[in-house]
């Protein structure tokens, strides 16, 4: 049996990184922006039912970019894990940090396994504050499983750095919901080949004033109204 060729670990992980980045770049990006009463999550997505932004639990939303096929099962497992946890203990005991760590391990283990392809995805796990836990939390997960916190705003996708630069200039504390949405939509419209209309935008909010389930998906009409304001 011939010996396998030697490939250095550096080379393997460079290839994996390139592979994952290229996969992610093919898709569209997602932005999350904090406003006075919550967080707005915005993406350009011409598809109507295959979403990038989803409800996970009472205060937690999920946004994914890259391969839909690969982030969808993670979302599914997230809903499952949080519901089981809330059912076992209490709904107050479900925190995004816990789920973010689990995601980090899954994505990271796929990246480290030498005979596996890396996941071509990037994820935001967004948690809005409430009376008991007033702080908003935004967790950013990259294709290699790295996990970090973001503040004020976050961007994922192939052109996230460009978006991030724009938001860095435009972001202010205590934006209204409409202002936050407008800034995010403007940021997306600075990208090449972007077509931003209320119909092509996918928008969801996590709003503190929403009752138990803070997540709400906005319709094209609602998006249009907010952009007009």
């Amino acid at each position: 049996m011939p010996a396998p060729f030697y490939v250095s670990p550096e080379q393997i992980f460079r290839d994996k990184e390139q592979y994952a980045r290229r996969g992610i770049e093919k898709g569209k990006d997602v932005i999350a922006v904090e406003y006075e009463n919550g967080i707005v999550i915005v993406a350009e997505n011409p598809q109507k039912t295959l979403n990038k932004i989803y409800e996970i639990y009472d205060r937690i939303a999920f946004a994914g970019v890259g391969s839909y096929q690969e982030y969808e099962p993670l979302r599914y497992q997230g809903v499952q894990a949080t519901e089981i946890k809330g059912y076992t203990y209490s709904r107050e005991d479900v925190h995004a940090k816990w789920l973010a760590n689990i995601y980090s391990q899954i994505i990271g283990s796929a990246y480290r396994q030498l005979d596996m392809k890396p996941l071509e995805i990037e994820i935001l796990l967004v948690e809005v504050g409430d009376d008991i836990y007033p702080k908003n939390n935004i967790y950013h997960l990259s294709f290699d499983g790295r996990l970090w916190e973001e503040e004020n705003f976050a961007t994922i996708g192939g052109r996230s750095e460009q978006l991030s630069e724009y938001l860095q200039r435009e972001f202010r504390e205590n934006l209204t919901q409409a202002e936050a949405l407008k800034i995010a939509a403007k940021a997306l419209s600075t990208l090449e080949d972007s077509q931003i209309t209320p119909e092509t935008l996918e928008v969801a909010i996590l709003d503190k004033n929403q009752g138990r389930r803070k997540f709400k998906r906005l319709t094209s009409e609602e998006i249009g109204e907010l952009l007009k304001e």
Binding site: P73, Q77, Q80, A81, I84, K85, T88, I102, Q105, I106, S109
Partner: peptide, 16 residues
Amino acid sequence: MFKTSLLGGSERDFPN
């Protein structure tokens, strides 16, 4: 895939 049984289900093999 990760096991939601972190919570005490029958499969306890996460994160390996």
